[in-house]
Design a binder for these strands. Structure first.
Lengths: 371, 371
DNA sequence: GAGGCTCGTTAAAACAGTTTACCCATCCGT
DNA sequence: ACGGATGGGTAAACTGTTTTAACGAGCCTC
């Protein structure tokens, strides 16, 4: 009962001998106090059914008494997994400040948490890739798997994960021909709804501001748009499409280009909300009223869009959920419970104030464009 | 030269014997191949000056040959530090989707990267705190330190870090009387600039939509606003202030309240850009033109604000830099190189289109407010 | 030329868990 | 009463580094 070394503290020791405080307790210490082997303690910790409830209770009581916390680093070293997931982001300066990424990551973190995993952020700068740090992440046993968000077809390093069969899931892009798990939103379905809606409102001259065609999902939108326009007898190739590169800035520039070429345009569909924001600003500064002179539709449904003037009509993408599903697939992949595949989540149109019936007064406004 | 087990591959082996592939190489394998001890290899890895350049070169060549990567888990277990930083976020649903947090985290990640540290995300849900997981993070040797962002005075658990002297840095809030490192923007300075500017424009009736007063930085703005208003003979307590809780939604609600009470208000200062966005929408829907009838000023300078109609005049907070500095302080703290202290970063006003000279036609518009 | 100093290198002990092979005591059926 | 199965527990090996104390060799000094 007498501990080998007693602190000079004068406290009357209660029934259970107080821990020597200071020193961090390890599993060996627990084992000693509970009169069992370290193996037993470990098994109790991992709810191994081999251990009697009586023994387990005894061990557990010692654990709570001492406030013992297993060292996760040691667990990782010994075990097969580290329970750490990596999120790879491109180095669009301030990528994280983008609600699109934020929403995604938020979904990932929430889900990872529920599965007892942690999430690490990693930005895939050119150096990072050149030094093959994305592979090192695995080789140094730092992560069990990675989620890739915001990449396009030019980021060929993504294929390394497939080549070396490292668990990885790509979000909102697909790499045809490579066995990489991916999870995407149904952009095509959303685009169909947008086109149907705009046509129903009587719009004929509809422009498109799309994201970089290096991304499969952006191409989905383009494809749908082109087909629907051709069906109505308008040739989209006649300058009705502009690349807005996913940013407000280029969205703004794109709408000015489109309006210059086609002053009679009455509606524009944007591949994401940021471009829609830029387009709305460009249109207004060009002297058009939204939605009276120009209907604008976005895609993403970032929280913010509802607070614009006018509130933005947009395609809702379940980004939070998407992140969660990507995360779950990754964890399954890590444990070999799943085959690489592509999963698609449904989307739907959210009607707000930036769209209206087409009016016949095409080519209105047109005052001197700002800047 | 002949490896113990040769794979049945028929490739003519080049001069240097190919590694047995499959099996991960460890430091022992490197040591064996370079004819040195593991200690030597470890020292080479850590650039220990005790090792001769000749030996080091030999070891390094073996390392590159085999593509060996030290196991970071093992390094952490053995060493004192894990080189992992935690970022604690409140569970404002979708906190991460907020550009404010995004920009901050982005700065943190960039800086951490430069110091060879990794960043982990953790959302401090009520359960999380109740189960004392924020302490467990340290006890289980998972992180070396944490950055706390987005918390207010009610989040008393922050003090636990001080109590248990765990390295932690609080961003954009200060806890008086507790020795916790914190890094904040000069909100007071920004507010002074805003007030000076609005007064110069001839505004007299200025409202304030502030963030939660549980945050020191929000209080800073309130204090400055109150003093400056009193100096001009307006009593801010007469319903000129509203709590916008940092969100667009409440910002919108707040402006409607303020306009109801004071139809002659000609300018409003908002504690962050999100509230400013909501305020602008509310004002417009209330029939006011911004900036003609109402000047609006925000605070944060989120990228997005420049693309509103009209573009938002706002206080620029160096959030990216702030994150970086917080991160750097934390790393210093971890290595015992710094004493807890508070650092303040300068801010400045960014003039855009949402502000204008005060007009005398106070109480304009006022048409039926949209729901 | 022997004792004392460096200097570079090494063997072995941490670090803190998990897992595997084995052991012993019951219990069961015949 | 005996062989085999079974259940509960344990000792020891293992994970892959860093670090410390010791050690041998060369060089300097007297």
């Amino acid at each position: 009962m007498t501990p080998p070394t007693t602190t000079p503290s004068a406290d009357a020791a209660p029934a259970t001998t107080a821990a020597p405080a200071s020193k961090r307790v390890g599993i060996r210490e627990i084992a000693k106090r509970a009169n069992v082997s370290v193996a037993t303690v470990s098994m109790v910790l991992n709810a191994n059914p081999k251990i009697t409830e009586a023994t387990a209770r005894r061990v557990r009581s010692v654990i709570t008494e001492t406030g013992y916390q297993p060292n996760r680093i040691a667990q990782s070293l010994s075990g097969k997994h580290t329970r750490m997931l990596g999120v790879l982001l491109p180095t669009l300066r301030h990528a994280l400040a983008d609600p699109y990424f934020g929403e995604l990551i938020s979904g990932i973190v929430d889900k990872a948490d529920r599965f007892g995993h942690k999430v690490m952020l990693e930005s895939a700068k050119p150096d990072f890739i050149r030094e093959r740090k994305h592979i090192e992440l695995f080789d140094s046993r730092f992560v069990d798997g990675v989620l890739c968000i915001g990449f396009n077809d030019l980021h060929v390093f993504i294929k390394d994960f497939a080549k070396q069969s490292k668990p990885a899931v790509v979000v909102n892009n697909t790499f045809a021909g490579w066995s990489i798990d991916s999870v995407v939103c149904d952009y095509a379905g959303g685009a169909e709804q947008v086109m149907t809606y705009l046509l129903q409102l009587g719009h004929e001259k509809i422009g498109l501001i799309h994201g970089s065609p290096n991304v499969q999902t952006a191409r989905s939108i383009i494809t749908v748009y082109e087909r629907r326009m051709k069906e109505r007898g308008l040739d989209p190739a006649q300058g009705w499409m502009e690349d807005g590169r996913f940013t407000e800035e280029h969205g703004r520039y794109a709408i000015l280009e489109l309006l210059k070429r086609h002053p009679d345009m009455t509606a524009v569909f944007c591949g994401n909300d940021k471009m829609a924001v830029g387009a709305m600003q460009g249109a207004v500064q060009n002297g058009r009223f939204v939605p009276r002179d120009l209907s604008v539709v976005g895609c993403d449904n970032i929280a913010h869009g509802a607070f614009l003037n006018p509130p933005l009509t947009t395609v809702h993408l379940p980004l939070h959920e998407l992140g969660g599903i990507a995360c779950e697939r990754l964890i399954n992949l890590i444990h070999g419970k799943a085959q690489p595949a592509t999963e698609t989540l449904p989307t739907h149109l959210v009607l707000r104030g930036s769209t209206a019936l087409a009016t016949t007064n095409g080519g209105g406004g047109g005052g001197g464009a700002v800047a």
